[in-house]
């Protein structure tokens, strides 16, 4: 091991991971290439498109703008984890039901960002608030309306379920 290759220890979707990585490897490449978690997508690689959105220590980040070595000691969650735990199953169903995806490339990042908004909101967010929170996630297929519809429907359903 030298300063260009480092040992890291972290949790990914709750599982302990220990690995040796090149310093230059981004978090999203580490997840995809080393851990075979290919749900996080690589789009622009400079922080514009949002396809690589994952959670680190509970907060959404760009997987292409963090290095894997920076996640030593961190808790990382990907769409695979959010999906397996059932945390986003209602969002996934609503996206399917309302045609909020076509090619699906942006969907993991979109759902991760949408869930970030919904779990932080004390009330049902407005359509403008939904658009604002998803403004960092590009979708080139849908024109966004169906995505906003799906997120809004889930927000209302969850608020109804809380009453």
């Amino acid at each position: 091991m030298n300063d260009r290759t480092l040992d890291i220890s972290l949790t990914v979707n709750g599982a302990r991971v220990q690995d040796r990585v090149e310093a230059r490897k981004t978090l999203v490449d580490f997840l995809r290439e080393d851990l075979a978690l290919t749900g996080s997508h690589v789009g622009c690689e400079h922080g514009v498109c949002g396809a690589c959105t994952v959670r680190v220590n509970g907060e959404i980040v760009r997987g292409c703008l963090m290095l894997a070595v920076q996640c030593d000691g961190a808790a990382v969650e990907t769409i695979e984890g959010l999906s397996d735990s059932g945390e986003v199953s209602d969002l996934q169903a609503a996206f399917e039901q309302r045609n909020a995806l076509q090619c699906g490339y942006c969907t993991p990042g979109m759902i991760t960002a949408a869930q970030d908004l919904l779990r932080r909101s004390k009330k049902v967010p407005s359509r403008d608030e939904i658009r604002e929170h998803l403004s960092g996630n590009y979708c080139r297929c849908t024109g966004y309306h169906a995505i906003v519809d799906a997120v809004e429907a889930v927000a209302q359903a969850r608020a109804g379920a809380r009453k």
Binding site: T26, H46, G47, R62, L65, M66, L67, V69, Q70
Partner: peptide, 22 residues
């Protein structure tokens, strides 16, 4: 890193050492 790592990815910058101050 929200500007720096983007410039590294695009190879607009190629430093020999990154000093992580986080």
């Amino acid at each position: 890193g929200q500007s720096l790592i983007a410039t590294l990815n695009m190879r607009l910058s190629a430093p020999a050492l990154l000093i992580d101050i986080n």
